[in-house]
Design a protein around this nucleic acid. Structure first.
Lengths: 215, 215
DNA sequence: TTATTTATACCGACTAGTTGGTATAACATG
DNA sequence: CATGTTATACCAACTAGTCGGTATAAATAA
């Protein structure tokens, strides 16, 4: 076996992700990608048959990493609490924590693709849809359990409330960039958490466990 | 004065907006723009000195139109109700109504620019920031009035809750595109409205609101 | 052992077409 | 006419993608 090509391949993907987050993949030329990776045209086209295949590969990897985060995060909150509402609230807390330490260019590759038609193939769309829906499905199940115990004071579509979890992230990324203020992401997720709590927590029953609350 | 160039100018902007929403401005060539407008290169460069100036002009127009919507919408809800919370809830209702009839490519030009670094100049950023903040400012003022009358059951950052209005829209645009399901925009705004109501509306039963939270 | 084969990994000059942008002449209208 | 508006022709730089060739290292064979 010759030199290990997967290293180069990974470096291409990493470089491309960084550039895509910074300026969008559509506006990123292959020359920039190979320059940042430190390889040549030939090497690039050995690993990817064209730019579009690179785009698909990149978003698939992004979705896989998202899936890993989903699995570990949900598993973790399910061990931290037995109450479904608390589990969701904790998940929000974890999400906020993830964006406490601010990444260089906070954003979502899927959202980036959304607004760049060339990359938004049906294949990429489906990958993203699946990746997003698993979060909403999990949250919805939890919220419905919670609502059974303590029905919300106003009639509300719990599916939408669940999908709002993703909506908050995607929207917050955009505001973070527009305001040049990355901490808005964590703040928004926490605000969403608090609104969830107001919507679904038991009214005045003294059976409340002390949950540590950040300041 | 000879022929009226403002017509051509407007047609250029309209064509560009449509293309930018569909595939992103970075991936849209001037040739496509002039083809869609039905003019030639010469006419284009008479009206705009380069592509970047077109981008700035377009986002400024977008922000102006947004400002008009803001003015009429807030004025309208302020006549429809005297209660600040109801005004905000009505504003959400209006927002949902706007996206009931689905536009061809639901989305926000500002968000599109966000993810395409070339266009995201500091000038464009500031235009967007101002446009977005006036909504949040108005909502925040209303929610603070409402919270004075009926404090929320959980401690919550009302500034974040106000900015969430924009966050919901921006995030919902992305989910609408990802799910290929444009009605998610209206649904999300309505879910946000319902959560607002749960957070701030006077309790049906005039019970005591002892929010004793020891941290 | 050593020579040969084979498959993977990579290089960099090249091409055909596209890009944003310019130069300049023609046209319209007061 | 003069000024504002549009058209044609063109360019230099850049684009994605190709192609012939090279380097590496393991497997095989002498």
């Amino acid at each position: 076996m010759p030199r290990d090509g997967t290293i180069t391949r990974t470096r291409i993907l990493d470089a491309t992700l960084a550039l895509a987050m910074e300026k969008g993949l559509a506006a990123t030329s292959l020359d920039e990608i190979i320059a940042k990776t430190g390889i040549t045209k030939g090497a690039f086209f050995y690993h990817f048959k064209n730019k579009n295949e690179l785009a698909i590969t990149l978003v698939k990897r992004f979705a896989e990493q998202d899936h890993e985060i989903y699995k570990t995060a949900t598993a973790r909150v399910e061990t931290l609490s037995r109450d479904p509402l608390q589990q969701v609230l904790l998940l929000c807390g974890l999400g906020a924590e993830l964006f406490k330490e601010v990444p260089e260019n906070p954003g979502c590759l899927m959202a980036s693709y959304c607004y760049q038609g060339d990359l938004w193939s049906e294949e990429a769309r489906q990958v993203c849809e699946v990746a997003l829906k698993e979060w909403a499905d999990w949250i919805e199940a939890k919220l419905k359990q919670a609502a059974k115990k303590t029905p919300p004071a106003v009639p509300v579509d719990l599916r939408q409330v669940s999908e709002m979890f993703q909506v908050i992230f995607e929207g917050a990324f955009i505001l973070a960039r527009t305001y040049n203020q990355p901490d808005i992401i964590a703040r928004q997720v926490l605000a969403y958490r608090d609104m969830l709590e107001a919507l679904l927590k038991p009214a005045a029953k003294p059976r409340r466990k002390a949950s540590s609350r950040r300041d």
